[in-house]
């Protein structure tokens, strides 16, 4: 039917931001998790709330046990919003708080959200987090908050944005200089901090970007891609 066309695409067509996660490199050290907390003003839930399962980790390291002693094995899998090309969370939002940006981000507009939480249910990756209460920081922990990122209020859904504040910053610079964002010019906080370089970020529409090249790897697969979500994140299988 009527398809959406972006009027403001950069030279050379729109971006499609994506990530590659090499499970063979990921060691489960969780540096990404704290980096994300610091960058994105993620609330501290506290023991009480965490015990209700309400701890927020836009990126979380899922751990899976396989086998029994002495052949027990552990696998780590960083799971964050997959920024699906066809995201199940988007159409179910009655107010367009969850929608798809022209550059391939699965956006969550906090101020539009009324908190029906349907998107959270419909996300097969369970990477959407809800603000059950007004977030609170014990003074002066709040002085750390990143001014570029909204502090979410009570009753709204939140999730990984691929650090859109950084992407937009890089895009503005590039736009000023009349060029595209260069590969590696912008990285989300998790990618930046990852000690083993398991995470790589870039533009999937650029065939020469690291992300594009790595995602063609034989080890590549999309998490739950059989659901037709067209995830923007390619995982590279762990070699065992």
């Amino acid at each position: 039917m009527v398809e959406y066309r972006d009027q403001n695409a950069p030279p050379g067509g729109p971006y499609r931001w994506g990530m590659v996660i090499d499970l063979d490199r990921c060691t489960g050290c969780e540096a990404c998790v704290v980096a994300c907390h610091a960058e994105n003003n993620i609330r501290i839930s506290g023991e009480e709330e965490a015990s209700k399962g309400r701890a927020v980790n836009w990126i979380r390291i899922e751990r899976y046990w396989e086998g029994e002693y002495p052949n027990a094995q552990v696998k780590f899998m960083p799971v964050l919003c997959q920024h699906c090309g066809s995201a199940p969370c988007e159409p179910v939002c009655p107010v367009y708080a969850s929608y798809h940006t022209p550059d391939g981000l699965n956006a969550q507009v906090y101020n539009r959200c009324v908190g029906v939480r349907y998107c959270g249910n419909n996300c097969p990756y369970t990477v959407r987090y809800f603000n059950w209460f007004e977030p609170h920081w014990d003074e002066p922990l709040n002085e750390q908050l990143n001014p570029d990122v909204t502090v979410r209020s009570v009753g709204v859904m939140e999730k990984c944005t691929f650090c859109v504040q950084r992407i937009r910053g890089a895009q503005q610079t590039a736009q000023k200089e009349g060029r595209r964002v260069k590969d590696g010019e912008v990285t989300p906080a998790c990618v930046q901090s990852c000690p083993t370089e398991a995470l790589v970020f870039g533009d999937r529409n650029d065939p020469n970007s690291r992300v594009s090249r790595l995602s063609k790897d034989d080890r590549g697969f999309g998490l739950l891609e059989e659901l037709g979500t067209e995830p923007s994140i390619t995982y590279l299988k762990r070699i065992k």
Binding site: D6, Q7, N8, Y96, Y99, T101, P102, L105, A107, V109, Y110, N111, R112, V149, T150, T161, V164, Q165, R168
Partner: peptide, 8 residues
């Protein structure tokens, strides 16, 4: 006119 231009 993208929402994510001003709201994030």
């Amino acid at each position: 006119k993208d929402c994510f231009t001003c709201h994030y």
